[in-house]
Computed example of a mutant assay.
Amino acid sequence: MEDFRRLAENYIATWNEKDADVRRKRIQELWAEDGEYVFPQAVLSGHDAILAGVTDAFGHYGAKGLTFRLRDDAAPDANHNAVRFGWELVNPENDEVSMAGVDFIIVDKQGRIRSDYQFFDVVPV
């Protein structure tokens, strides 16, 4: 279970990463080469596509000072090679939640993300 909590923490840190080179390295370490990030708007396959998606999200949110964090009410929970956890996007100045959701992740035998399904609970207006 501790490994899955660390996976969730590293995952969140990737979305908050300001340095593009470090962000790329984190994605290469977290996701399998043919891993997928699946969210309602698209399916991103492979490191380059996932990096583009994370970088785009950082440009929309992180560059404005918003940060992702794990949700207290949806801590990482594991079942064999699957983990789910809740996250939220907040303004650190006032703790206002702009977006929130749950990720359901399947990892491969090396512990890298094979599939990452994202579900939204709160979306920006």
Rank of each mutant, 00 (worst) to 15 (best):
L70N: 09
Y37C: 05
E29C: 05
H47W: 15
F39T: 00
D48L: 09
A57E: 04
I50E: 06
E29G: 11
E36L: 03
A32Y: 04
D48H: 07
F58H: 12
A63M: 14
F39L: 13
G65L: 07
H47P: 01
E29S: 09
Q28C: 02
L66K: 08
T55S: 15
D48Y: 00
Y37L: 14
Q28T: 05
F39K: 02
K64C: 01
V38E: 02
F39D: 03
A63K: 14
G65W: 11
L44R: 07
G59F: 02
D34L: 03
L70C: 08
G59M: 11
G46V: 09
R69D: 08
Q41R: 07
V54F: 07
P40V: 12
K64T: 09
V54A: 12
H60Q: 13
A57M: 12
F68K: 08
G65V: 12
G62H: 05
Y37H: 08
A52W: 05
I50V: 14
A52F: 05
F58L: 03
R69Q: 15
T55M: 06
L66S: 06
A52M: 04
L66E: 10
Q28R: 10
E36Y: 01
A63Q: 15
S45E: 11
F58W: 15
A42C: 00
E36A: 13
F68M: 15
H47Q: 04
E33D: 07
V38N: 11
G53C: 10
A63G: 10
L70A: 11
L30F: 06
T55F: 04
Y61G: 00
P40S: 06
V38M: 08
H47V: 10
S45V: 14
I50W: 07
G53D: 01
E33N: 07
G65F: 04
T55I: 04
E33T: 03
E33C: 01
Q28H: 09
F68W: 14
D56Q: 11
G46N: 09
H47C: 08
Q28N: 08
Y61C: 04
L51R: 05
T67L: 14
G46R: 06
W31M: 05
A63H: 01
G65H: 03
V38Q: 09
D48M: 10
A52V: 03
A63W: 01
F39C: 06
Q28Y: 06
S45A: 13
A63L: 14
K64P: 00
G59R: 13
H60N: 13
L30E: 04
Y61A: 05
G59W: 03
F39S: 01
G62N: 12
G65C: 08
V54M: 09
E33V: 09
F39V: 02
V38H: 08
G59I: 01
